[in-house]
């Protein structure tokens, strides 16, 4: 499963790589990291079909995570990747906005990696179920 992580904090990459070291080692999950929504757009243009899931921060300078979400929903209709939004401000307003724009899930910082893993596993299983 290929996951695109979009966050303006550079250390998110090493954190994910360590948290998912087993999964990466076993080639269960493959990660790609982008520091901005603009970078993510460019990356998706190159490799859209490979990306199954996108994890994006909302608060980023320039194009925000919500902008990226609506761009993805507008651009990649079929197959449309799963998008989970992450933000430091875990409030209802932003949650509603993200869901309205078509987010599959909503995560709050600090990330609970155990529940994230659960969610990823569930998504993968669902995906396989759909596929099979």
């Amino acid at each position: 499963m290929k996951i695109l992580v979009v966050d303006d904090e550079a250390d998110v990459e090493s954190l994910f790589r360590q948290r998912f070291r087993k999964e990466i080692k076993n080639h269960e999950i493959e990660f790609h990291f982008e520091l901005s929504a603009e970078g993510a757009v460019a990356y998706l243009e190159r490799t859209s079909s490979e990306v199954v899931l996108i994890l994006s921060d909302i608060n980023m300078p320039g194009m925000s995570g919500l902008n990226l979400l609506s761009y993805i929903r507008d651009t990649y209709k079929s197959p449309s990747p799963i998008v989970m939004m992450i933000t430091a401000y875990g409030d209802q307003e932003k949650y509603d906005q993200a869901i309205k724009l078509g987010a599959n899930d909503f995560l709050t910082k600090p990330l609970d990696f155990h529940s994230l893993k659960e969610k990823l596993k569930k998504t993968e299983n669902d995906g396989q179920n759909i596929g099979s």
Partner: peptide, 8 residues
């Protein structure tokens, strides 16, 4: 943000 990193 830095606190999240410290904890994680």
């Amino acid at each position: 943000n830095p606190l999240n990193f410290v904890n994680n």
